[in-house]
């Protein structure tokens, strides 16, 4: 019934390209310009022009197959070799989508946590320490300290402090996912990308994870893909709505949830589809 309205709003959106509320306290840390992702010849993402605010949580929502994960994985070049990504990804004034960028160094600044917890077949301690050792941190005290801080930040320290040398594979799903977060923040990134990090977790672990993320945003800028509307509503400042490979709407989370400009967003956030 709002069909006309919808089309107008959509057109306006497509013309404006970037929709991002200005907030001087949280300057843009990452932005994409004219981003397109192709799997072979097939275009998966068209024009994802977004700016992400520092030290805030931005949620990417949308139905399955809407391209939000593909978009997220493009941000730290995890789609290299899988898909072709064109356009710019600006991080602190550098286009990190250039071929001559040191992707390994870049991924240490833009960390990632995945949908399924993927602890390595190593001890809890080594899961966190081994990437640091590879980059020349060999001092035992320094390593101990980083392991402890990271585990504390991920709210896992109290549960595992006496069994750091045990295999990480024995951890429960929720604990394993926290370990993955600890591992990601141990290399001291600026930005943390999370791809549906709670989808394999039970409600209690999910709620703990959300608390942890709210803590972490003091130090990191967080972009999270989620299927869970309530989760987006609970933790994020900004929300981008993806549909069929396009960003249809991007605004403060409260605005998206209470006053969506596009009918399809309204349908989605109110649970009419998706």
């Amino acid at each position: 019934m709002f069909l006309n309205n919808d089309v107008t709003a959509k057109t306006a959106m497509l013309e404006r390209h970037i929709v991002q509320p200005a907030d001087p306290e949280h300057p843009t840390i990452l932005s994409t310009e004219d981003l397109h992702v192709y799997y072979g010849k097939k275009e998966a993402i068209a024009e994802g022009d977004l700016r992400f605010a520092s030290n805030q949580i931005t949620a990417l929502i949308g139905p399955s197959g809407s391209g939000k994960s593909t978009f997220l994985r493009s941000l730290n070049r995890m789609n290299d070799r899988i898909a072709t990504v064109t356009g710019k990804i600006m991080y602190r004034g550098i286009d990190i989508n250039q071929p001559d960028i040191d992707v390994y160094e870049m991924r240490r600044r833009v960390g990632m946590v995945f949908q399924r917890p993927n602890p390595f077949a190593k001890s809890i301690y080594d899961n966190i320490a081994f990437a640091l050792r590879l980059r020349g941190v060999t001092d035992k005290h320094e390593l101990d300290e980083i392991v402890e801080t990271s585990l504390k930040q991920a709210a896992l320290w109290n549960q595992v402090k006496d069994e750091l040398n045990k295999s990480a594979l024995a951890l429960s799903g929720g604990q394993a996912q926290r370990l993955c977060i600890a591992r990601a923040i141990a290399v001291k990134p600026d930005i943390l990308l999370l791809d549906e990090p709670a989808s394999a977790l039970d409600p209690v672990s999910t709620s703990q994870l959300e608390d942890t993320l709210l803590e972490l945003k003091q130090q990191y800028s967080i972009i999270i893909v989620t299927h869970n509307m309530q989760q987006a509503g609970r933790i994020s400042e900004y929300t981008a709505f993806f549909n069929q490979g396009r960003v249809l709407e991007y605004d403060t989370t409260s605005h998206i949830f209470t006053n969506p400009q596009v009918q399809i967003t309204s349908d989605y956030v109110s649970g009419n589809f998706g």
Binding site: E105, R107, F114, N118, F120, A131, R183
Partner: peptide, 25 residues
């Protein structure tokens, strides 16, 4: 595959991921 992605996401090269994560496992 998630083990490989885990290694890459930490800024390890593919060779480091293979020798330090995949082969030991």
């Amino acid at each position: 595959t998630t083990q490989r992605e885990g290694g890459l996401a930490l800024g390890l090269s593919r060779w480091e991921t293979i020798t330090r994560v995949i082969l030991p496992a």
